[in-house]
Structures are given as structure tokens and as C-alpha cells.
């Protein structure tokens, strides 16, 4: 473990806590893409199957359990508890365009041709694009509650922190994970537009609004 990865994981943890807090306090999931959240459940479940047969560390174990359970809990909040505040008519991104290509990519690029390793690859590819329905929704409505933008910023910062982590590991441990690195760079790049508006508007105290 190095500081970059620790900051990344903490940022990921924070993003989920911010999202749950937003939904609980405003009693609404307005502005949150259900499709993106459902994709995250898919990502975590397909990636963390190794919980059942590979022990890494206590930290690793609890984080995996947390990510699976919190993402399922968010789906529950959106589909059951605060269902009336979820508006599917603006959540229109076609996720089959993400799932299909990610499945094909996972069949081509993986470290071992076994069910769990191909699912791991799939989860890595899917995670890199899972935010697209959310960003698409933001683009469509042109605005977002400030707390939602903090959620997105923390989520974007998470994979961004992983990039220096990979560089550091390359130098100190001679470890390179090309699948994770390529997808991680793509994932971070998808946030650049958002980060620009976040830094120039939200952090200056203005509302998140996209130019018409």
C-alpha cells in the first residue's frame, strides 16, 4: 500500500458516503443516474468474486464488502425508499452500448482465460465507462446540486489517484497491470470536462451549470 492508493481508496469511500448522505438528507435521488449506480453493482460483484477464494488482507476484505453492500444499498434507496424521486425519463443512456463492448474487450484482454479472470477484466473495463449515464444525464439537464458534484469529484479523484500509484509501483515493485492502467487512464479522462467546471465554478462558490 502506498499513499496514492490509500488516498484513492479513501476518496472512493468518501464519494459513496457523500452520495448516501445526499440521498438521506434531501430525501431524494434527483440528479442521480440509476443506470450508473446499477453498473457499479455489476462492477463490484463481478470483480470481487475473489472474496470467496483469495485472502489479501483485512483492509482489502472490508473494502470489498463495503463496496458491494453500499452499492446495493444505493439501488435499494433509489428503487424502493425514494422511488418517486427517481426520474427514469432523463436517465436515457443506452447501457447495452457499454455492456456489449466491455464483454467483448474482456474476452480479448485478460490475464488468464478463466471465468473469474474474464469477469475481472470485464469489471475493469465497465468501471471505466460506468459514469457515462451519469455524465450524460448531467449534460442533458445542464445543472447539478452542489452535493452531487462533490460526489462526482470524489469519485473522479479516486481513479486519478490510482495513476501515480501505478507509476510508483512500477518504479518500486516492478509491477505493471496494463489492463487496469489503460482503463484507469480512460476513466480519469472522462472526468476532465466535469473537473474543469467543478474547479472553475463549484469551488468558487457558484452553482454547477453548463453553458446552454
Amino acid at each position: 500500500m502506498n499513499l496514492f492508493r490509500l488516498f484513492g481508496d479513501m476518496s472512493h469511500l468518501a464519494s459513496i458516503l457523500i452520495l448516501v448522505h445526499k440521498i438521506q438528507t434531501t430525501r431524494s435521488c434527483r440528479g442521480i443516474s440509476f443506470k450508473t449506480q446499477a453498473l457499479y453493482v455489476t462492477v463490484f460483484v463481478s470483480r470481487y468474486l475473489d472474496l470467496f477464494y483469495d485472502w489479501v488482507s483485512l483492509y482489502n476484505f472490508f473494502m470489498k464488502v463495503f463496496f458491494i453492500s453500499s452499492s446495493c444499498y444505493i439501488l435499494y434507496l433509489m428503487k424502493m425508499k425514494f422511488r418517486p424521486t427517481n426520474d427514469p425519463s432523463i436517465d436515457t443512456f443506452r447501457i447495452e452500448y457499454l455492456l456489449g463492448p466491455c464483454a467483448i474487450l474482456a474476452l480479448i484482454f485478460h490475464y488468464k482465460f478463466t471465468v473469474t479472470e474474464v469477469l475481472w477484466s470485464f469489471s475493469i473495463f465497465l468501471e471505466s465507462v460506468a459514469i457515462l449515464p451519469q455524465l450524460f444525464m448531467l449534460q442533458r439537464t445542464g445543472e447539478a446540486e452542489t452535493i452531487t458534484t462533490h460526489y462526482l469529484a470524489a469519485l473522479g479523484a479516486y481513479r486519478a489517484f490510482y495513476i501515480p500509484n501505478w507509476i510508483y509501483r512500477y518504479w518500486t515493485e516492478d509491477i505493471v497491470d496494463p489492463i487496469a492502467v489503460t482503463s484507469g487512464i480512460v476513466q480519469t479522462a472522462l472526468y476532465l470536462d466535469f473537473f474543469y467546471v467543478y474547479f472553475t465554478k463549484v469551488l468558487q462558490g457558484q452553482k454547477f451549470e453548463l453553458p446552454a
Partner: peptide, 10 residues
């Protein structure tokens, strides 16, 4: 080296 996947990463 069997696999270069970093198993300790989340």
C-alpha cells in the same frame, strides 16, 4: 510471471 494483475488493488 503467471499474471500481472495487482490482486491487492481494489
Amino acid at each position: 510471471q503467471e499474471t500481472n494483475r495487482a490482486k491487492d488493488e481494489l
